[in-house]
């Protein structure tokens, strides 16, 4: 059992997963951002590996990725930055990163790094899971899944309101860690009427899935976070957090202000 399963055993409601882009806003801000997220209430960190052609992301996250690439971020650089990030001495003031960390990215950069080498190095750090949205289930089952499983990495599939019940069950059986429920069939950062999403989440709730369900896309503040948590185990914030730190001169303070506004009672 790894950190993701442990987390959901201890906490199955209001789980907050926050997305950040590695190497953004500055090349060396990656772990500083992660620490600020952990210190201010993020239960899971989804760390984005920047890619030139991020089809499933919206303009804000793409711009953060372009900035990170221009800053010099690569998978190799990221693994260097993450060396020892779990150690109690990682930040000098006691306490490394202990929350689950999931790497999110697109297949092409991972293939160039070498898929098996990537999984081995990620597991060594250790990273807890992967989200690679352009790996569909056929490729997962025939090619990539067994490698991830060999290194004990969770793989999280996405489902959408358009995913059939049969397919949701299939993806639930393949996923480990949690299922990523896209709140509407849309790219990240898009505003949609959230009430339309509730029916879909209620349907998922009634399906008795094997995995916890985390809702992503369109979660941007206290109100959308709470609405999502009413029907799921938690929610994922991406674009809204990137906006909160993109022009920040004090990452710790901006992160604190943003997460407090989301989590205030």
């Amino acid at each position: 059992m790894n950190r993701i399963q442990e987390l959901f055993q201890q906490k199955d409601k209001n789980v907050l997963n926050v997305y950040c882009t590695a190497g953004f806003p500055a090349l060396n801000s990656t772990v500083e951002v992660m620490k600020a997220l952990q210190d201010n209430g993020a239960d899971i960190i989804e760390l984005g590996m920047p890619y030139s052609d991020p089809l499933a992301d919206g303009p804000v996250i793409q711009a953060s990725g372009s900035c990170a690439i221009a800053n010099g971020m690569t998978i190799e650089k990221l693994f260097e930055q993450l060396q020892g990030f779990r150690k109690a001495t990682a930040f000098g003031d006691g306490g490394g990163i202990y929350v689950p960390v999931i790497l999110m990215g697109y297949l092409n950069p991972v293939l160039q790094y070498g898929f098996e080498k990537f999984c081995r190095h990620a597991a060594d750090l250790p990273i807890d899971g992967l989200i690679i949205p352009d790996v569909p289930e056929y490729e997962f089952e025939t090619e990539y899944g067994p490698v991830m499983q060999r290194y004990g990495l969770n793989f999280i599939f996405l489902i959408t309101p358009e995913t059939s019940e049969e397919r949701i069950r299939k993806l639930d059986s393949l996923s480990t860690g949690f299922l990523y429920a896209v709140s509407s069939s849309s790219i990240t950062g898009t505003d949609k009427d959230f009430s339309a999403v509730e029916k879909y989440l209620q349907r998922l709730q009634g399906m008795q899935l094997k995995n916890p369900v985390m809702v992503g896309f369109g979660i941007k503040d206290k109100s959308t976070f709470q609405s999502a948590c009413r029907y799921a185990n938690g929610a994922i914030i991406g674009t809204a957090y990137i906006k909160a730190v993109e022009n920040s001169t004090d990452i710790a303070a901006s992160t604190k202000a943003f997460l407090s506004s989301v989590l205030e009672k």
Binding site: A56, P133, D134, V135, P136, E139, F157, L158, T163, V182
Partner: peptide
């Protein structure tokens, strides 16, 4: 070849 698409395009 293949079909390396995110779930949002699956249907």
């Amino acid at each position: 070849g293949g079909a390396f698409i995110p779930e949002m395009l699956h249907r």
